[in-house]
Amino acid sequence: MTTSTHTGGGMDVKGVMGSISFDGEWITITKKEVGQQERQFRIRAADVTGTRLKPATRLFHGYVQFVLPGSAPATEEKGLMAGGRPPHSDPHSLSIRHGANEAAQKLMAAVEQARA
């Protein structure tokens, strides 16, 4: 795993089977599924039309999601294993653990600020 060396307030959130980094302009969502190649999705903060953050609890993962023009946000999957999160295949969201709530909140606030 590489560490971020961005200057200018770069931040990273470690999620479930992936991570999100934000360098002030670009959001990079990296996802790794078992047995598959790592995939990266880059989104310009200026292109984001909305953000959703569902904090994780001790029992259930939460998620971070970015909404883009022309794409409806992925719906939450119901069920015990999904715990009300978008599917892992959604390129604009990432599940987070309870310990990542604070980092996720800071990242989302930074993205909201960059959008303004």
Rank of each mutant, 00 (worst) to 15 (best):
M1F: 10
T2Y: 13
T2P: 15
T2E: 14
T3P: 02
T3F: 09
T5Q: 12
H6W: 02
T7K: 07
D12C: 09
V13D: 02
V13K: 09
V16C: 03
V16T: 02
G18W: 07
S19Q: 10
S21K: 04
W26A: 00
I27E: 00
T28I: 13
I29M: 12
I29R: 04
K31I: 13
K31H: 13
K32N: 10
V34G: 12
G35A: 12
Q37L: 08
E38V: 15
R39V: 15
A46S: 14
V48P: 11
T49N: 05
T51N: 02
T51F: 05
L53G: 02
P55L: 03
L59R: 11
H61K: 12
G62C: 06
G62R: 05
G62T: 03
Y63F: 14
Y63C: 00
V64M: 09
Q65V: 02
Q65Y: 05
Q65K: 06
F66W: 10
F66Q: 03
L68W: 06
P69K: 03
A74S: 13
E77K: 12
K78T: 15
K78A: 14
K78M: 13
K78V: 15
K78S: 14
L80R: 10
A82T: 11
A82S: 13
G84K: 14
P87L: 11
P87D: 11
D90H: 04
S93K: 05
L94D: 01
L94A: 04
L94R: 01
I96G: 01
I96A: 04
H98R: 11
A100M: 08
N101F: 09
N101K: 10
E102T: 15
E102D: 15
A104R: 00
L107E: 01
M108K: 02
M108D: 01
A110R: 01
Q113Y: 09
Q113K: 14
A114G: 07
R115T: 00
R115V: 00
R115K: 05
R115S: 01
